[in-house]
C-alpha cells in the first residue's frame, strides 16, 4: 500500500495516510472546486486498505473549514471506514474542533449520528 502525503493549500487540506508511521490525518481547509478529483486518491487508498486492513488505525480529522461539497466526500470516507470496521477491523475516528468553534463540534456530532463506528470528538 502506498503512502499518501498531500500538503495543504489554501483551498485543500493536508492529507497523510501513512501506515508505516501510523499517521492518518486530514487537516486544514477543504473547499476545492472539484472535491471528487481532490479526494479520489483518498478513496483509492481506502479501497486498498479495505483489502489489506491494518488494525487500530486512528484517523484524525482536524478541519478548520469545509464546504458543503466536501461534506459529502467526508461522509463517503466515513462510510467506507464504517464498512471496514463492521467487517471486523478495529479502528477509530477522532474529530477535532477548535474550542471556540461550536459549528465544527456540531458537524462532528452529526457525522457520529450518521455513521456506526467509534467516533471521538475532541477540542484542541
Amino acid at each position: 500500500m502506498k503512502v499518501i502525503n498531500i500538503p495543504a493549500t489554501e483551498d485543500t487540506p493536508k492529507v497523510v495516510l501513512d501506515h508505516e508511521n501510523k499517521i492518518f490525518e486530514i487537516s486544514g481547509r477543504s473547499l476545492p472546486e472539484d472535491v471528487v478529483v481532490f479526494y479520489q486518491p483518498v478513496m483509492e487508498w481506502l479501497d486498498n486498505f479495505e483489502n489489506t486492513p491494518i488494525p487500530n488505525m486512528e484517523l484524525a480529522i482536524k478541519l478548520e473549514y469545509f464546504n458543503t461539497a466536501s461534506s459529502k466526500l467526508i461522509l463517503d470516507i466515513l462510510l467506507k471506514l464504517e464498512e471496514i470496521y463492521q467487517d471486523g477491523t478495529p479502528l477509530k475516528v477522532i474529530w477535532y474542533f477548535l474550542s471556540s468553534d461550536t459549528d465544527m463540534k456540531e458537524a462532528g456530532e452529526e457525522y457520529s449520528e450518521i455513521v456506526g463506528l467509534p467516533f471521538e470528538i475532541t477540542e484542541y
Binding site: Y65, N67, T68, S100, D101, T102, D103, M104
Partner: peptide, 21 residues
C-alpha cells in the same frame, strides 16, 4: 467576534460564490 461568527460568514460566502461558479 467569535470564531463561529467568522466561520459562518466565511461559510455563507463560500456557498454563495461556489454556487455562482
Amino acid at each position: 467576534f467569535d470564531t463561529s461568527i467568522k466561520t459562518r460568514v466565511f461559510g455563507v460566502m463560500v456557498e454563495c460564490l461556489q454556487n455562482i461558479t
